[in-house]
């Protein structure tokens, strides 16, 4: 990594927006924002070469604060808008920032099909395991047995594993980080932004205001220490037995593979059509 001073973030913020930002004190989204800006600064991309797309939810506010091209779209449709932007302007680096409800519930179909197509996009999924903005209702990633506003006696559905879902659906790069592992998150985001293909980075973030309070998890400091305790580096995870994995999760690069890119196939089919038209066959 090139040497980028962390205070580079001030150069990338939109100073006509109101600061401090709207998120709760200690919210992990601020840390993700800083990490994303450092990754962008390290990637060498200019502010006009990047588009940030977000849906609805706490994470929807994130692109508003960054001084790059940004689109704040409807609920769950961040990837849909990003697909259109990328196909219209393939030279742009398109990054979507979504929450767990935004990406796996309302936009669940868009997520799996974007992964299947392997479009050249980066999807940052901030997973706080609840619908934080609307008051702590359960989301598809709320763990089994956890309490939520709409599950007062404990949640009865098993949770989605976003990374496993994206890997199965065909994403070419899947990584997981937590806001506690901020240095690793910087590296993973840089890797995802500079890589071609559908790149997913799932970031576990504490929602101490809703999820933490209802589950007696304490402040965001306690929740981040919980992430530190439960996280296992992906290289070590493979060697662990089933019993050791109980209650823990891997962080780091989980999937890194090459698959045919949608953009390349799209370009080829356009060229074929143009050739056939020129030959008078269609």
């Amino acid at each position: 990594m090139s040497t980028v001073h962390p205070s580079i973030v001030y150069d990338w913020l939109r100073h006509d927006k109101k600061f401090p930002h709207v998120w709760c004190p200690g919210c992990g989204l601020g840390i993700v924002l800083g990490s994303l800006v450092r990754a962008l600064a390290r990637s060498g991309l200019g502010k006009n070469e990047v588009v940030l797309v977000s849906g609805i939810g706490c994470s929807g506010r994130l692109p508003v604060y960054v001084d790059v091209g940004s689109v704040h779209t409807t609920h769950g449709r961040a990837l849909t808008f990003a697909t259109g932007i990328k196909l219209a302007k393939p030279e742009l680096t398109v990054i979507t920032v979504m929450g767990d409800g935004d990406s796996t519930a309302i936009g669940g179909n868009h997520l799996i099909h974007a992964a299947r197509r392997n479009l050249d996009l980066t999807a940052i999924i901030v997973n706080n395991q609840t619908y934080g903005m609307t008051g702590g209702q359960f989301s598809p990633t709320t763990p089994l047995g956890a309490r939520a506003s709409t599950a007062a006696y404990g949640h009865i559905e098993p949770a989605f594993d976003i990374s496993a879902l994206c890997a199965t659906a065909g994403a070419s790069f899947v990584a997981r980080a937590t806001v506690f592992h901020v240095v690793q998150m910087d590296k993973l985001l840089l890797q995802a932004i500079t890589r071609r293909g559908f790149n997913v980075v799932e970031v576990l973030s504490p929602c101490h205001t809703n999820f933490g309070r209802q589950n007696r998890l304490g402040s965001q400091i306690d929740m981040m220490k919980g992430f530190k305790k439960a996280a296992v580096q992906a290289s070590r995870w493979d060697k662990m037995s089933e019993s050791e994995r109980e209650g823990r999760f891997p962080v780091g690069v989980l999937v890194d593979r090459d698959r045919p890119l949608y953009l390349d196939s799209y370009k080829r089919i356009c060229e074929t059509a143009a050739r056939l038209r020129a030959e008078g066959q269609i």
Binding site: P6, L13, P20, L29, G34, R38, V182
Partner: peptide, 19 residues
């Protein structure tokens, strides 16, 4: 720079070249 990177509000900077 741990304090700087873990501050969600960008309210702390370390180093002489702080903004």
């Amino acid at each position: 720079h741990m304090c700087e990177m873990l501050c969600p509000d960008f309210a702390i900077s370390v180093g002489e070249d702080a903004p």
